[in-house]
Design a protein around this nucleic acid. Structure first.
Lengths: 165, 165
DNA sequence: TTGGATAGTCAACAAGACTGACTTAAAGTC
DNA sequence: GACTTTAAGTCAGTCTTGTTGACTATCCAA
């Protein structure tokens, strides 16, 4: 019922349902805060979270194809297309015909797109930076370990691939 | 560019944008996995994530009022009401007029509601448990520390209150 | 007892996810 | 060269979940 003592360790095998539930609730509340800052900014531009995600990954991996982005975001192409179309119309994203395979479309941020991506990213990094500083480097390492274990093999592969490219 | 060495610590003040971005992406992918298991179950019942959240917190704090639940979930009461109505109609949640204040409605899970909550929770705890086991107790402590720092004061207060009641 | 604040409900709308069916263009294969 | 597959995009329709605005019921205090 009450929190188990010995905060550091030794309690590995005593994973009570209560401890797990606390973890679940922490994820819920933290994710809400995590998205809150960019959400405020996005609203000013009339965009949503979906636009942010697209901008983020196009920035991260410039020139990626629509299919790749689809896999990373885990949504249907109809859903992505709605978002992508407005970003292209508004001049934040550019879609170029693939060099090798002309069926593909490669996605790039325009200068304006890079500006918005940067301010969204900065809002989100601000909170992350402050959380990291508060919790300390050892906690940060643990944070990343648990998240990586939580994503499961498929998403973990995506996540790791992103590091290299 | 590359991941800094010395996995344990010492890198506190070297919070590069790249490191922060990795954290952001880890949150994104992990949260997706985090919700995937209960989502599959919910679909069988014709419910969504909002129903899960309501069931979770009603179970956690039996007899809480609609207003309290509203604050915890961070949505508008109209949005919550739609979800709550279907849960009540389907006999998973009971809404009783408040004893002291008759304007209030106190919310309780029925037996059927408790059964569904339990299976949703079990699905979610399964992934959490496995991530905790993989990462180890020290990582778990860090995970919780970073999440708590990330939620900010308001949500952290809600989160902490929930522990006691 | 009247009038304002609070708790909750009903109605209508928008964003963003989904499925399904289809087109176009390019690439690959027999 | 004809056929199939693949990448991208489109149109239509649905669902969940968020929103605002207008409303009712209850409580409390002047």
């Amino acid at each position: 019922m009450a929190e188990n003592g010995s905060p550091g360790g030794e309690t590995l095998l005593f994973l009570t349902d209560e401890q797990l539930r606390r973890g679940i609730e922490a994820m819920f509340f933290a994710y809400r805060a995590f998205t809150a800052d960019p959400d405020r900014l996005l609203e000013e531009y009339g965009y949503g979270r979906a636009h942010h995600r697209a901008l983020h990954f196009i920035n991260r991996q410039s020139g990626l194809t629509v299919t790749t982005l689809l896999a990373v975001l885990g949504v249907t192409k109809q859903s992505l297309n709605r978002v992508l179309r407005t970003l292209i119309e508004d001049g934040l994203v550019e879609s170029r015909v693939g060099r090798r395979d002309k069926r593909e479309r490669q996605l790039y941020l325009t200068d304006a797109g890079a500006v918005l991506e940067r301010s969204l990213s900065e809002a989100q990094r601000g909170r992350m930076r402050s959380a990291y500083r508060t919790a300390g480097p050892q906690a940060v390492a643990g944070f990343r370990q648990v998240l990586e274990a939580m994503m499961g093999p498929d998403l973990q592969r995506l996540y790791q691939q992103m590091k290299d490219e």
